[in-house]
Design a protein around this nucleic acid. Structure first.
Lengths: 178, 178
DNA sequence: TCGGTCACTGCGAAATCCGCAAATCATGAG
DNA sequence: CTCATGATTTGCGGATTTCGCAGTGACCGA
């Protein structure tokens, strides 16, 4: 019945005959979002502080239902609602991407890197690097210290190649909002 | 003055001897945040929906003042409050970093890349690549099409090197929250 | 068929957001 | 030094929003 209720409250927005589109869809390993949760995420990608009622109107759900879904998405770690900033304006003037060649198991190296607060981003990659990491530092000295003294000395790190950022041209947080 | 006000109302939180750290500091081109706004940003990095009153208590400002500062920070584009998600759970299974070698001016290439919704991130770098971009795609076909058909055919793009993501190990949005 | 679980709805009460006018402070000119 | 100006902050209601909870229907396994 909630589909009628939904339809009555927002017939202008959603198709009342939508056949229930299962909430979980436990297909592969990933939890996988249903269409409604995806729509909620998109709303919050536009404005992380948008009121639940407004989101509800947009996706065709009651305020309370939206609130519950959002809470679950946060609890599950599917999304987080945060302020993102331009590092430059927050006092981090030097950034770099680092490609890393590793001997043997990647995980110990990755774990050590994870522990470093200056390392913002770590991926294991296929290609000529084993690991790529993004580093955010206050200045050149700081950057040099992190790369030279703390990363290159890590056991397992064979060699690195640095790509110092000259200019950030684009940065989006709009996955799914195409 | 507002530094005393701050100190008097939240002596438990902040150092009253903090030597003034000017509100604007119109030094270079960047606006630059003062200590209070930085604290506000940090609060919102922990939880983008934290109430203004709670933030105010933490940074030593009234609810209304926090609200105005946040609004200004948003208007100025210094920060944005958004939901960020794990691309995997939102249906984007293939990601890659792409290093690009460019002939001549970088800007036209960068602009063309900016227009592509699959390109999440673009930086001009010093080092063996001119440009590094992050690509978020739904599957291998999609990724291949973007790289091969749309990027490598761009005028000015001499060559590219791909680093397909195998595993994302860390991703933070906590600049300044060290 | 009988629970049990899950997601959604409705609804007050409490908390929060919002706009506005007055107060405070910083700055710079006179 | 004093005064005017502009920027920021504060203190209010009133409107909105959030929050918790009880009730209901759908689905699933026993």
């Amino acid at each position: 019945m909630h589909s009628e209720a939904v339809a009555s409250r927002s017939a202008d927005q959603r198709d009342s005959r939508e056949p229930r589109r299962d909430t979980k869809e436990p297909r592969n390993g990933t939890p996988q979002l249903d269409a409604v949760s995806l729509a909620i995420v998109q709303q919050l990608q536009e404005d992380g502080r948008r009121p639940y009622a407004a989101i509800g109107k947009a996706v065709g759900l009651s305020e309370a239902a939206v609130r519950q879904r959002v809470q679950k998405l946060l609890d599950q770690g599917v999304m987080q609602i945060v302020a993102v900033t331009d590092p430059l304006t927050v006092g981090f003037r030097r950034q770099a991407m680092l490609g890393i060649h590793v001997d043997g198991d990647l995980d110990p190296v990755a774990d050590a890197l994870t522990a470093m607060s200056e390392v913002e981003y770590i991926v294991i990659t296929a290609g000529s690097f084993d690991l790529m990491v993004e580093i955010v530092c206050e200045d050149d000295d700081h950057l040099l210290e992190v790369i030279n003294k703390r990363i290159r000395t890590l056991p397992g790190v064979r060699s690195t190649e640095s790509f110092v950022y000259l200019k950030l041209k684009k940065q989006t947080y709009m996955w799914g909002t195409r």
